[in-house]
């Protein structure tokens, strides 16, 4: 088995045993699904205040309204859950003191860092599929019938939104590395989320990597392909920088 695969296998075993990854995924998906389905149930009653909050797209009946609401809720909520994943996977080694034991091994620390990144993206992909399935079940329960091809495509983009967001959220792992703990990563995640929201509201978020996944999921045609490529490239590059930081890591503080 290659060292890369061994690192991934060991990181996966640690993550499965700790239940943090599982709990984060389930709580994030359950939270998003509960908000969306409850909004739809209340919107069905015709409450004008709720309809005003949902906006024109969200207030639409059936699948289009539900998926528009889901997009609004899922983008920031996924980013919060993914922040926890990245920050915990990296920061726990410092918080638990186990980083000391990651020297002098057959698997390099850079490989460990890459395995953590791949694991976070993989867990996020599962999270995305879980939400898409939960929304599908919710829509069927609310009596919307089978989704049309266009609605199914939106469900598919919601599933992809999570791993896409995990790829571009790699600065969280870098911050947890440089800050030697989870809190630095979590704080960075919040700053990135707030920045994305502000830039999108100002209408200049189209090229901000953290905003690109949500804008793409909302309307793929409205986002330039180079912006998507740039967001992915920056996410991977920051992950590579994190691996180098782990490779050169000194326990000097």
């Amino acid at each position: 088995m290659s060292r890369w695969l061994l690192a991934l296998r060991i990181e996966t075993a640690k993550a499965l045993a700790s239940r943090v990854v599982f709990a984060t995924a389930v709580l994030t998906v359950a939270g998003i699904a509960a908000i969306v389905i409850s909004f739809r149930a209340v919107a069905a009653s015709g409450d004008p205040q709720v309809l005003a909050k949902l906006g024109e797209a969200g207030a639409a009946p059936g699948w289009p309204g539900m998926l528009a609401t889901a997009m609004q809720v899922a983008a920031p909520a996924f980013l919060l859950g993914i922040t926890v994943l990245h920050a915990w996977l990296v920061g726990r080694e410092f918080a638990d003191g186990t980083v000391v034991a990651l020297y002098g091994l057959s698997v390099g620390r850079g490989q460990v860092a890459v395995a953590k990144f791949v694991l976070a993206v993989g867990a996020s992909a599962v999270m995305g599929v879980m939400l898409a399935v939960a929304l599908l079940a919710g829509g069927l329960l609310l009596g919307y019938g089978a989704p049309s091809g266009a609605d199914a495509a939106v469900l598919g983009r919601i599933a992809v939104l999570a791993p896409f967001s995990a790829l571009v959220a790699s600065p969280v792992a870098l911050a947890a590395t440089l800050g030697r703990g989870m809190l630095a990563g979590i704080a960075t995640g919040f700053v990135l989320l707030a920045s994305a929201q502000v830039l999108v509201v100002l209408g200049v978020g189209g090229w901000f990597p953290l905003a690109v996944p949500a804008l793409w999921a909302l309307s793929p045609d409205a986002v330039a392909l180079p912006a998507v490529a740039l967001a992915l490239a920056i996410g991977v590059a920051v992950s590579a920088i994190t691996a180098v930081a782990w490779r050169r890591l000194q326990l000097n503080r």
Binding site: K14, A17, S18, G97, T98, V100, A101, L102
Partner: peptide, 12 residues
């Protein structure tokens, strides 16, 4: 080696 903290994860 064993320097301060062991290679031991609490959940395992």
């Amino acid at each position: 080696h064993l320097i301060e903290y062991p290679l031991a994860y609490g959940e395992l």
